[in-house]
């Protein structure tokens, strides 16, 4: 456990020391000792702001604040996102249209269907598919690619479908595969992936 002795220090120094420690070490547990009420309340508030669970004990003039990382905090989420199996690299495929390439739209749709049905050949390294803009149309009922996406999902590929885009096309009710997602999840996914393929 990381410890900080912030006794005798005026606000905002105890909070700043706590912040610096969390930013640098990303600890699971942290203990800060302060000696005044203002510092206690500010440090507790900061830890809770950073999603730590806090307990406070008093010994004489010393106030000991222990922060424990709660479930669903930033560091934890990142670990979950990254998955448990990190032996191989993770590939993310970003699909931002319901057709592949520009030129002929009919051809583009055929190519996209073919691409999705062949995507399984990528093997275990295929980690996640993100559908945005008209790409979400691949994941709705009646779409030719739907069975192939479902197959991929069953094999453990994670599929994220942009909620804003579904709403835009009025297709929110018709989505048949994957999780409806937001931009923050998409950005975190892009950050965590080892390789990103843009379509």
């Amino acid at each position: 456990m990381k410890t900080i002795d912030a006794r005798g220090l005026a606000c905002p120094t105890p909070v700043l020391q706590t912040k610096a420690m969390i930013d640098k070490e990303d600890p699971e547990m942290i203990q800060i000792t302060v000696d005044n009420e203002a510092a206690r309340q500010n440090v507790v508030r900061f830890l809770e702001f950073r999603k730590f669970q806090t307990t406070v004990t008093t010994e004489g003039n010393d106030i000991k604040i222990v922060g424990k990382r709660g479930p669903g905090t930033a560091g934890q989420q990142e670990a979950d996102m990254a998955g448990t199996d990190r032996n191989s690299s993770q590939i993310l495929v970003m699909i931002s249209s319901d057709r592949m390439g520009h030129g002929d739209d009919d051809l583009g749709q055929k190519l996209m269907k073919s691409f999705i049905s062949t995507l399984k050949e990528m093997g275990n390294e295929l980690w996640r598919i993100v559908c945005v803009n008209s790409g979400v149309k691949l994941a709705i009922e009646g779409a030719e690619s739907l069975p192939h996406l479902k197959e991929l999902e069953e094999k453990g590929v994670s599929i994220l479908v942009c909620g804003t885009c579904l709403t835009h096309f009025n297709l929110l009710e018709k989505k048949q595969v994957g999780e409806t997602t937001n931009m923050l999840d998409i950005i975190t996914s892009l950050q965590v992936a080892d390789h990103v393929i843009n379509l």
Partner: peptide, 16 residues
Amino acid sequence: FASMGFVPGGAYKNRE
């Protein structure tokens, strides 16, 4: 900033 714990010591004294 107050939610993040940047409340000056004076505010606590005033409250007390």
